[in-house]
Simulated scan of single mutants.
Amino acid sequence: MAVERASERLVELLTRDDAVQDQWVSAVAASLGGRISRAELERELTELYQALQQALGKGGLDWRDEAYSEVRALLVELSRNRARHGFTPTETAISVFACKDVLEPTGDSSAEDVTAYLQLARLFDALGLFTIEAYARTREEIISAQAEQLLELSTPVIKLWEGVVAVPLVGTLDSARTQVVMEKLLQSLVEWESEHAIIDITGVPAVDTEVAQHLLKTVVAARLMGAECTISGIRPQIAQTLVALGVQFGDIVTKATLADALRHVLQLGGARPVGGGER
């Protein structure tokens, strides 16, 4: 049987049996364990069901056809919603494959209906894969956004006094994180009109040549903004490592502890009472 006739026959089957849509919703609801309301499922799947009928009538069985643009858009929306709510790829794909199960031929189905169903099964397989791909893209976006948020949270800039800010670093310092530190520090220097910055690396587990270079770049960038930086948290182990690596900080002030760095800034007279002086 030609593909065109198969799609026509399938439209007839979909529109003839009013119970198909309800059975589809029930099957999906059972697989999701009540984590989405029945009303929400009915809205999603009714829109998808109607769009599928129209696409079958206009574009045949090719899911890449322009006639399926609304179907694809609805599947992307469904996939994104499932991903944001923590559903698995399998639970997301079931929203598509369940309709194929509902329409499965019975023992008294005609040969024409069976042939049409086989064509439908291929269509739903393709749409199911499309749904999983959309789900995967959304999960990647969510993970990337969460990583950026964690990066922001792990690099705070604290205003200690008028004219003095501090950046307490915890964890590994890599290129991406250094860029965030540099941007936030420079922005804070301008916003708070600070002349001194303390970069505390007490919480950085290890300092190698790469980390040292990242710190130097941050200090140089701050100096270009007219601020002097003090690096604190230089523990004995870190000092020995830097000497062994031949890393030199030049005229950059380094201190063993944050308290030493604070004392140094106070001795320079760079700290002003909060609220004092002109901003």
Rank of each mutant, 00 (worst) to 15 (best):
G250T: 01
E70Y: 03
Q119M: 11
W63A: 15
A121P: 03
L56F: 10
T15V: 08
D108Y: 08
R16L: 11
D17W: 04
A39S: 14
W192N: 14
I252H: 02
A55F: 13
V180P: 00
R38D: 06
G250P: 03
A222E: 03
A30T: 08
A206W: 03
L78H: 14
L103E: 11
E77K: 15
S232K: 01
A73G: 14
H214W: 00
A206I: 09
A222F: 02
D251F: 04
A134M: 11
S232F: 02
S194E: 10
H196E: 12
A227D: 05
Y117P: 07
A83I: 04
D251G: 05
A67Y: 02
Q248P: 00
D174E: 02
E8G: 11
L186T: 00
I234D: 00
L266K: 14
E228I: 04
Q21Y: 09
I36A: 12
L127G: 11
S69C: 08
E140R: 14
F249L: 12
Q53D: 08
L169N: 00
A227Q: 00
V204E: 06
L56S: 11
G57D: 09
V28Q: 14
I231A: 05
H214Q: 01
I142S: 07
E152W: 01
E195N: 08
V71G: 12
Q213K: 10
G250C: 06
Q267C: 05
G57S: 09
L52N: 10
T115R: 09
V102C: 13
A206F: 12
A147F: 07
V219G: 02
V165W: 01
G57T: 03
V243Y: 03
A271Y: 00
D208A: 06
K217H: 11
Q53P: 05
T155C: 12
E47D: 15
D18R: 08
L262P: 05
R82F: 15
S109V: 04
V211S: 01
Q50D: 13
E152V: 00
L189E: 03
Y49C: 09
S95D: 10
R235A: 09
L268R: 15
W161H: 05
R235D: 08
D17S: 12
L224G: 07
V96H: 04
D62S: 12
V180C: 01
A111K: 11
I94N: 11
R279S: 13
Y49W: 15
T131D: 11
E152G: 07
E133A: 15
Q53C: 13
A221E: 02
R279C: 07
E162Y: 02
G226H: 04
E40P: 07
I252S: 04
A227E: 02
D22F: 06
Q240C: 05
T155W: 01
T131A: 14
R35E: 10
S194F: 07
